[in-house]
Every structure is written in structure tokens, then in C-alpha cells.
Design a protein around this nucleic acid. Structure first.
Lengths: 180, 180
DNA sequence: GCGATCACTTGCATTTTACAAGTAATTTAG
DNA sequence: CTAAATTACTTGTAAAATGCAAGTGATCGC
């Protein structure tokens, strides 16, 4: 379990702008990746976040988990039956970041070379509300089935070769996932 | 005008995930504030960004403008008629960050104390596509009328006193703004 | 010319991040 | 029971990013 939050993490706000305040809470290169892992990959534990692909340093991970918990975006609880394990999960405030993540995914896939298959991205773009509803359902029902796999394969995108025919990364989507 | 982009700004990607790639481009506490200023406040110049309210340091501002330009999110051009002034504007790639900013605004206003009037936020939430269309129109027609004022007043929000009756900050919205 | 304006750059102290290693509290294997 | 393994971190230290104050150089208005 994480230690109590030091006061220095509660800095004075720069302004009253909602965008600015949001950025103070998760405006860095790591926080939203943890939220992503919780939201669409079904990750729950420290070790899973560490092995998530982007290579976050272990002290930074601990720091970000603390900050996200302090912001009320995630919760940490010791697993019943194994006191070594801490299970993290999103709060309602956390799951409500889904639209932000969703738009970032669409933007990145549209303008940068990524490993996300074009068809998948296009399907998500066409079915925005259904995808967001499914993300929310999984959270509500604590369904840990990954909605999206880790995108590890070779990058593709607007300037690259045309979209891949298969998902990479070894994980399959559930029947109730974005391909439904 | 900004200097050419050093190679060290083009780091190797952490992963192929679109969210991760997006975060590498604008995942910090300042970049999206500049985009916000360009998008909804009609700011164009270095000095306007500096006086934007959050107090960005001048070297950081220069660095972020360089990075955003390198990422193809903004353009810099010397003003015709006054060679001192540099006018920045969003590219199409940049204006397409509008949904990301929009969702961050809604989330921040919903869960944190901000200076954004509740009625305004609720109106924006109810008229998502119209607001985004208006943002896009202003960009396309190079209409510099601010869509939203700087939110400088005392914070209000879900846990605070009920919404303000008037906009603060001295700037008024245009007739074609979000109040239409 | 001359002061003012604008868009930066530079130097330096502080903070944050990255990387490697270590530690404490369990749980599991034998 | 003890020993090894697992999990979730912390610690130390170097590198990088940030924040702050001051300075620079190219215009521009007069």
C-alpha cells in the first residue's frame, strides 16, 4: 500500500482554468498511461504497470500512483487473500477520464505512426458512444477483460504502409469488446 | 521566429500506442495551455502567451513553441508589416486537438473547483458538436474573437458554492460564441 | 538617432526524472 | 519450521528539465 501523501504534492493552483487544473493533475508523460492500463487493459498491480511496455521507472511509478490516489483518480487496496499484492482501480472520477483518453487515442492514430490497426481505430471513431459505454460497463462490473491489447507491433499510420490485417500483442479482444 | 529544431527533441518512441505517442508530444503541464490560448482565446504572440495567467517561464515558452512547431501542431510566421512580431497559429493537426481539450475542460470542471461558470460548462457539455464546430470555424476563417475568456475568478465547482451568475475576467464572448 | 517593443537566449539554482540497487513484508516450497 | 521467491515499494546518485532573473539583438515609431 502506498504511503500518505506529502504536502508538497498539493501545490497551489496556477489558475482557475479547468484545463490548467486538469493538466496539473495528470499533465505528464506517465499518469495517463497508468489510467490507460487500468481502463482498457485490465491491469491492477504494480508489476503489471511496470511491464506495460513504455518502461516507467519504479520510483516514478510509485510517485504517480501516489499522486493519482491523492487526486482521487485511483484507489489502492490490499488484495484479500494475498497481503503482498495491492490492487489498484479507477474511481468514478478516474473512469470519467475515458473521453480524454479516447480523443487522445484518435488524435494520435490520425496524425502519427502508431501500432494501432487502422480498422480498429476507424471502428472506434465511428462508435464513440458505444466504446465509451463499454469501457464504463467493464469498470462498473469490474470486468478485467482487456478492451484493447498493448500496441507493440511496427508502427503504421497516415504516412506509413496501409493498415495491418491482424492485431498484434498476443491478447485477444473479448466478444463484448470494440469489435462487437 | 524560432530556431531550427535540435535533434535531441526527436526522441525514440516508447511504444506504438497512440496514447503514449500523443503524450510524448504534448504530455506536460504547458503545451496544451498554449494550444488552448491559440484555440479559444485568440492569442497569437509570444507576449500574449506569457501573460496568459499561469505564468510560464520565458525559456520554457520558447522551448514549447519549438516543440509544438516541430510536431506540426503549430506554425510560426513573421507578421507582415512588423518584422518583430511572430504570429503563431494552429495547423489542422493542432486544431484537431480540440476534442482532447474539450474533454479535459469538462472533466476538470466536473471534478475540481474551477473558475468556469457552471452554466457555461453545462451548456458546452450539452452542445459538444456545436461548440467543436464553432472552434473549427474560427480556426478556418481565422476569426480571432475569443470563444472563452481567461478563467481568473475565484474557484467554484462541485464541492464549492453554487455557480457564478456572471463571467469574470473582463472579456466578453462574441455573438457567435458558445452562448449562441 | 534613440528609446521602446518584441521575441527570444543565457546563466544558474532548484526540482524532477532515470537508472541501478536494495529492503521489508508476505507467501510458497520443501 | 526454514529458505527461496514474490510483491511493492525505497534509496542513492547522476542526468535532465524547470524556474527565475537578467541580458541580447532585431525592428519600429518618432
Amino acid at each position: 500500500m502506498v504511503s500518505p501523501v506529502p504536502d508538497r504534492l498539493k501545490r497551489k493552483r496556477r489558475s482557475g482554468c479547468p484545463v490548467s487544473i486538469s493538466l496539473e493533475l495528470f499533465g505528464d508523460r506517465w499518469s495517463l498511461l497508468i489510467v490507460r492500463d487500468l481502463m482498457v487493459r485490465g491491469y491492477r498491480t504494480y508489476k503489471e504497470f511496470q511491464k506495460s511496455g513504455e518502461g516507467i521507472a519504479t520510483n516514478i511509478l510509485a510517485n504517480r500512483l501516489r499522486r493519482l490516489a491523492a487526486a482521487g483518480i485511483i484507489l489502492a487496496e490490499t488484495e484479500a487473500g494475498d497481503a503482498r499484492r495491492v490492487n489498484y482501480r479507477l474511481t468514478e472520477k478516474g473512469i470519467d477520464l475515458a473521453p480524454v483518453l479516447f480523443e487522445m487515442l484518435l488524435w494520435g492514430a490520425r496524425y502519427e505512426k502508431t501500432s494501432a490497426p487502422c480498422e480498429l481505430v476507424e471502428h472506434m471513431a465511428r462508435n464513440r458512444s458505444e466504446v465509451l459505454a463499454e469501457v464504463c460497463r467493464r469498470w462498473r462490473e469490474r470486468d478485467p477483460t482487456p478492451l484493447l491489447p498493448p500496441f507493440r507491433g511496427p508502427a503504421s499510420g497516415p504516412a506509413g504502409p496501409s493498415g495491418q490485417k491482424e492485431l498484434r500483442g498476443g491478447k485477444r479482444q473479448s466478444r463484448r469488446g470494440v469489435t462487437s
